[in-house]
Amino acid sequence: MEKTYKIQVDCPHCAEKIERAIEKQAGVESVSISFVSQKMFLEFKDAEKESELLSSIEKVGKKVDGDFRVL
């Protein structure tokens, strides 16, 4: 399952860090975050657990950048 999400991320450096943090999440196959386009390209295993995965992604993202949000 591959999907593109609009996100809010405040600094380019944090985008990199968040990307690395999300990579470690269970169920994530690959992720790429673009600060410039404010987008997250996510490839994940289980389509049914999408919302669960997104909330855990938001959680780890927020740890790096408090303003991180999946829109």
């Binding site: 593109t4 450096h13 990199e16 790429s32 673009s34 410039v36 386009s37 987008k39 390209f41």
Partner: peptide, 23 residues
């Protein structure tokens, strides 16, 4: 076009690596 930015260039990857050590 939406997808284009997810395919990062080598230079971009180099910069993220550099950034990881620079700070």
């Amino acid at each position: 076009i939406e997808r284009a930015l997810s395919r990062k260039a080598k230079t971009e990857k180099f910069i993220s690596k550099f950034a990881r050590f620079y700070t």
